[in-house]
Design a protein around this nucleic acid. Structure first.
Lengths: 269, 269
DNA sequence: AAGTGGTCTAGACCACGTG
DNA sequence: ACGTGGTCTAGACCACTTC
């Protein structure tokens, strides 16, 4: 925990032991309010809790200490803890349930799977997507991979190629590249359907956001063969960079999707 | 304003005139806490302010009364008003600026245009998109249009066809259908580049969200001609239903986009 | 200096879930 | 009955903008 060398007493003059820094890193009481940016307390609490989540101090699905306990531990008011917890919830890293407690978001339950899987059948339905690994291998990172994943020249990656189906219909083929250094031994593992829960549980890497670029392309011969349709068909190419809690790009995923009876769903707010 | 026939005094027993209903529509003090859903105060404030926005009580870009004034007017605490204002800000209906005030979001400024325009050049750049109307006409709503826009059988629509360009390059053709009843006279108007600001200013209709379905399709002869490229090219079809503050579908927009040098950007959180 | 939103606190009560 | 998160209040102070 941070600790300030100085602090102004709260209004009521009551005793308080400060655990978080009240000044945003700037020294207070030393002449001027300091030019450096102001950093609210709840933001520091947010960062502290985020760090613990990134370090997997609490496992997915597990319950956190109550607001009051966290407030006491960190030396701030319950309201300030609440604001940080609400922000983490908004970032879908936590789930809060009235009367029960605050939990680490478990990105393996049904609704969470669809957080990063945007393909839906045109006519209602949509069970869980299934996957079959076509190929998996470790190799030196290509120039593209180094660029997209921010890797040094000597870096190695693990490449995974998977076919995925929705409601029993083949719908896409995806090529996934991850830095071998971040995911040691992943090439030898049994891969679950939802890779991101493996990243979280086995490697302590939580995917926070993903940036996708979509294009319409003509299906190549190889992809067409694997997807069991004719080459040249229009297909949706989804180029995704997934980013972890520390804002590092940790996965590059290129998907080719059939959209004859499916669509990609996007909600603009 | 709502007014409750009964209210429990606040803890300190100070005088309070209640303007908002404290009971969520259920009568309090009459034996049981009522089975009907609980409705928090800040939610009522949210709805009240939302209604005023929908009724265009304040114009886009205009400043709202301060938190304190709204709190006094509505008979709630400043913190409760703040929570409602924060929620409206999160829904990007308001913009708050520290030291200045709270403003009605102006969806005409540069960053807001891109809220609903997701096409970006592959290589950096991206000035404002431009538009040219190809056709505009009123007609009886088709079965598709009635279904998508929730219209009765006799309803009429205005259809607008536009070509749009980005950085001087033709990039898409879009067919827009809106209910004629909601937009009287729109067929005779000069159409601005950003239609949604026209909807807001001239018709008091604010687009809150848009749901899009994306597919890859082969370019038809007509679209190819208008876009000045070869027919059969893969293109991105974007099927959008835009919804207003009252959750009514108010626009159906079908776009065919060239994605040879552009992509559709999507951020997953 | 005055006014606005932003942060923080302390405490009360409410709704929800589980014993 | 108890503990949790959720709501609401009142008041103080901070940071930013404008006059």
């Amino acid at each position: 925990m941070l600790d300030s060398p100085f602090d102004a007493p709260p209004t009521n003059g009551a005793q308080r032991r400060h655990v978080m820094d009240r000044t945003g890193g700037a020294q207070a009481g030393s002449g001027h309010p300091d030019a450096v940016g102001f950093r609210p307390l709840y933001r520091q609490v947010y960062d502290t809790l985020l760090k613990r989540l990134a370090d997997a101090v609490w496992q997915p699905g597990q319950i956190l200490p109550s607001e009051g306990q966290l407030a006491a531990e960190l030396g701030v008011s319950q309201g300030t803890v609440r604001k940080a917890l609400d922000a983490l919830t908004a970032d879908s890293l936590l789930v809060r349930r009235q009367g029960r407690g605050t939990f680490v978001a478990d990105h393996d339950d049904k609704q969470s799977v669809f957080r990063f899987f945007k393909l839906r059948p045109d006519r209602e339905g949509a069970g869980m997507p299934t996957s079959r690994v076509v190929a998996i291998a470790e190799a030196a990172a290509s120039a593209d991979e180094r660029g997209r994943l921010d890797l040094v020249r000597s870096a190695r990656v693990v490449r995974i190629e998977r076919l995925r189906a929705l409601d029993g219909r083949l719908c896409l083929i995806e090529t996934i590249s991850v830095p071998a250094s971040l995911f040691p031994g992943i090439a030898q593992m049994e891969l679950p359907n939802t890779l991101y829960s493996l990243y979280a549980i086995r490697f302590g890497i939580t995917i926070a956001t993903a940036n996708e670029r979509l294009k319409a392309v003509a299906l190549g011969a190889r992809e067409a063969g694997l997807l069991e349709v004719a080459a040249g068909l229009p297909a949706l190419e989804v180029d995704r960079i997934a980013v972890d809690l520390e804002d590092r790009p940790v996965e590059w995923r290129l998907s080719i999707c059939l959209t004859q009876e499916l669509h990609y769903r996007s909600v603009l707010r």
